[in-house]
Amino acid sequence: MSVTSHDVAQLAGVSQPTVSRALRDDPRVSKATRERVRKAADRLGYVPSDAGRALSSGRTRRIGLLLTDLENQFYPHIIAPAFHQLESHGYQLMLHTEVADNDVVAERLISNGLDGVLLATSTIDSVVPLRLRDRRLPFVYFNRTSDAVSADSAVVDPTQGMREAAEALSKHGHRRIAAILGPANTSTAVNREIALREALAQQGMSIPARYIHRGPFDTATGHAGTEHFLTMPQPPTAIVCGNDVVAFGALNAARSAGVGVPDDLSIIGFDDLPSASWPIIQLTTIAYDLDAMVRRAADLLIDRIQSPGRPLEESAFPSHLIERDTLGTVP
């Protein structure tokens, strides 16, 4: 016969509602009572039911992480820190992978009984934030934001990183600079392009339209853009990529074409993924504290759940250039 909360209450000498409150660390229950209840629960081997806790508290303590950009190798790196930070708050991470960003996705999130959602792959024109707002389901933007609804966010500020990249390119004698950018409907692509153009302008440089290539944040985009640039009568001497994954594709294309990096072509990424520093890659890239940004997004969401009326907060993480082997001097 399974142990119930009534058994715990009898052993601890308290009421059953007190057991429920004590096991979820309700501040209305004294510390001594909470410890007595936990000892009784441990002695009996009692494990609280998630369903029961949801019924009694009105919360499931489940947080959704929505990923719709499934081909982007950046996002697997955020799952572990998100899981651990939410777990430290007593919440479970529920991964939701979709191939679209629309009304159907929003309804699936709402119907899953979540306490809140981390939106990691929002597009500028996404309707998901609108639907979550209308249904009063708390959410936080991570990395990407949407123009549809203002909300708490944890993002990277590319300004300083792009400024340092432009300074380094100028120092190394680069003047023909190309860019392989992400989708125009993502805030990350837009913000990084703006920061790059402004940084190059400060160095007296610009990127002509023929040196711009756009596509998804994947290796195929980096490969295709680099292939195209290398067929030009005057190919660029450096390529700034929208993220590291795109830069990996650019490196592959250069290798396939027999073009030396950095002797003939310099390549710069963005994100400083763990593999960027591998000895076989040694990618020059723009870095920021990704783990801290993930943890901050989780904290913002828990704060929003617990204090719905608090002012909105944007946490913008600074960026900086890390020079490695893929940035060289123009001969």
Rank of each mutant, 00 (worst) to 15 (best):
A257H: 15
M232C: 11
D244E: 09
M232Q: 15
H228I: 08
I212E: 15
G182H: 12
I194V: 04
L283V: 07
R175D: 01
L251C: 09
G249R: 14
A201P: 00
D244P: 06
A254C: 07
A276R: 13
N191W: 03
R214D: 06
T226V: 10
H228Y: 14
T186M: 10
M205R: 08
E227L: 12
A247E: 14
A224E: 15
G260H: 06
L196M: 07
R192E: 10
S266E: 03
Q282W: 05
T186Q: 14
A195V: 01
S266G: 03
P208F: 11
G242Y: 08
H172C: 02
D272Y: 00
A184T: 12
V190K: 11
H228C: 06
I207P: 02
A220W: 11
A184Y: 11
G204Q: 04
T226P: 07
I281M: 12
R176Q: 10
A209T: 10
T221Q: 15
A276H: 07
P233F: 11
R175Y: 01
R176A: 07
A220H: 15
E227V: 04
V246M: 12
E198M: 00
D263K: 04
V245E: 13
Q203K: 00
F229E: 13
A250D: 10
N185R: 12
S277F: 03
N252L: 12
L200R: 03
P235S: 12
A178W: 02
A201G: 03
E193F: 00
M205F: 07
P274C: 10
P233E: 15
V240R: 05
I280K: 08
S277P: 04
R175K: 08
M232P: 01
E227W: 04
H223L: 05
R176L: 08
P235V: 08
P233M: 14
I180M: 10
N191Y: 08
H213C: 05
R214F: 04
R192W: 08
